[in-house]
Write a protein that binds this DNA or RNA. Structure first.
Length: 521
DNA sequence: AGTGCAGTTGACTTT
DNA sequence: TAAAGTCAACTGCAC
């Protein structure tokens, strides 16, 4: 019987268990589907498809070389499966498990229903550390280690093609698919070769400055691995990357200490912990898909929803808030499809606190801009940085302080906001403080060449802090937080709301019995 | 040379 | 991968 291998966000031949197993079972029909419901959803944009197409070109060539070319279709999945069944007869369906958004979740249920009705076996295999059907986070880290150290399935030597000829529409452009948004002018290239090159250069020495380079948007684009987009589309797997990191670590440890590149071992450790966090966050959406739409902690419902100001949101989206660091980051993101973690957190924090926007619309805007958009990471992160998880501490970023810390000379801000090019150093992060004469001299009149700030940063931060902490202090909000922690929290000590004992104030007996109650008065 | 003191640094807490 | 405030320990300097 024909084995249909359905490629989704796993666009590689290597470390591909469904492909490896299908190849042993019979002739393989590799399938990729442009699904209108997925591609036209509000979190999807042209740059995502453009990156996927880079991957598909190489994947298609690889499959053809193995003997069975990639078949591409453009339709919703049940329709594609029904057509294939008419064309080639009954088949077996193979794929990876996917932790996606509500659209792909509904699609997967429709595929499962179709498979049941037609008696088609569907083998879904895990592709990283995310565990399906999990109730809580106990022992999760151990399972991650086991998954990541499991042997990598061998690449099939050749694939038997189906004897029937099957049509393919070939690759389609985002425009032909009717997708919104432009491809990012400076988007990183997709494909297996690009992914392998990034991993190799990172392990070979580019990773040396990892920990110091990741914080500033000036250095992060080169200093970070840049594998996130390859993980999102599967041109590289987390497991093969983790194993490559471990091999490199062993190699370095076998060298005499003086021959080891200084700082490389700690960079590897830091990178490995991020591979771990990748799956840790995706697990949250897998376990609770509703967090794409609703607050992880329902006690925060109603905090911001009714205050949504479309004009503020639009200014934030366009990178015209009048706060240089916020605007420069948004403009870099629009142009390149990528920005470093700290600045993503700052952008989200600014939308949520200073602009007091509910996270849902900002999340969709960022999803369309991030080439490496991964729903399972995106929504937990957005909620964490918006303060609606209840288990993470409030992180309110001050864009003026971030600018001073991460861009002390103003190079980054001037590069992305040409209107600020001649603003003197003393005013570069707060151009509205320039006296009128200085504005004229700098060819930057605030309100004409660059917007006046749409909020008073300091005052907005103060007001947001007060509102959030008032709510968090409420008894029922604190009590519910424990349930969120049980379900989603990391069991790593000191992380994500893990109850910590204070040295200064040891828990009283009453607190130990009822740890989330008020202390007795 | 030891003391007093302003200023700095880092650990810790609160919001 | 927050920021601001507190506090104790430390530092450099003047006397």
């Amino acid at each position: 019987m024909i084995q249909v291998v359905w490629f989704k966000r796993d666009l590689r031949l290597q470390d591909h268990a469904p492909l490896a197993q299908a190849a042993k079972a019979g002739p393989v029909l590799p399938l990729y589907v442009y699904e209108p419901a997925v591609l036209l959803a509000p979190d999807c944009a042209a740059r995502h498809t453009a990156f996927a197409n880079d991957c598909l070109r190489e994947l298609g060539a690889g499959l053809a070389a193995l003997g069975s070319p990639l078949i591409v279709r453009h339709d919703d999945m049940p329709g594609v499966l029904a057509d294939l069944r008419k064309e080639v007869g009954p088949f077996v369906l193979w794929s990876h498990e996917e932790t996606g958004n509500a659209v792909t979740f509904a699609r997967d249920r429709a595929v499962a229903a179709w498979c049941r009705e037609t008696g088609t076996p569907w083998h879904e295999l895990p592709q990283h550390g995310v565990v399906r059907g999990l109730r809580d986070r106990d022992h999760w880290a151990g399972r991650w280690d086991a998954r990541m150290s499991a042997p990598i399935p061998a690449l099939p030597g050749r694939l038997a093609a189906p004897s029937v000829r099957v049509n393919s529409v070939g690759l389609m452009t985002p425009g032909a698919l009717g997708q919104r948004g432009d491809d990012a002018a400076q988007r990183q290239r997709g494909g297996r070769l690009a992914g392998e090159a990034l991993l190799a250069s990172f392990l070979d020495g580019r990773g040396l400055g990892y920990r110091s380079a990741m914080s500033s948007p000036l250095s992060a684009a080169d200093g970070c691995s840049r594998l996130s987009t390859h993980f999102a589309y599967g041109s590289m797997s987390i497991r093969e990357t983790a194993q490559a990191v471990w091999r490199r670590r062993t190699e370095l440890q076998s060298l005499p200490a003086e021959a080891r590149p200084r700082g490389m071992l700690s960079a590897l450790k830091s990178f490995e912990s991020r591979l771990h966090w990748h799956c840790h966050f995706m697990q949250k959406l897998e376990s609770e898909p509703a967090i794409e739409f609703t607050n992880m902690h329902r006690g925060f419902d109603g905090l911001r929803e009714s205050a949504f100001d479309p004009a503020r949101f639009s200014a934030w989206c366009r990178g015209e808030t009048g706060l240089p660091m916020v605007d420069a980051c948004m403009r870099m993101l629009a142009a390149t499809g990528w920005i470093n973690f700290r600045m993503r957190a700052m952008l989200t924090s600014f939308a949520s606190y200073q602009l007091w926007l509910h996270w849902r619309e900002p999340a969709l805007h960022l999803a369309r801009l991030f080439t490496d958009y991964e729903p399972g990471i995106h929504y937990p992160q957005i909620q964490m940085q918006s303060g609606t998880t209840g288990i993470n501490t409030i992180r309110m970023y001050n864009p003026i302080k971030q600018a001073r810390d991460q861009d002390p000379d103003g190079h980054f801000v001037r590069h992305w906001i040409p209107a600020l090019a001649r603003v003197p150093e003393a005013h570069i992060f707060e151009p509205w403080t320039m006296p009128a004469s200085v504005q004229r001299e700098a060819h930057c009149v605030v309100g004409r060449d660059y917007p006046a700030p749409i909020v008073d940063n300091a005052e907005a931060m103060r007001a947001a802090r007060e509102r959030v902490w008032t709510l968090k202090a409420r008894r029922e909000v604190r009590e519910t937080a424990q349930a969120v922690y049980e379900k989603h929290g990391s069991r790593h000590p000191g992380r994500e709301g893990t109850p910590r004992r204070s040295r200064a104030k040891p828990a009283t007996e009453a607190q130990m019995v009822f740890p989330f109650e008020d202390p007795p008065s």
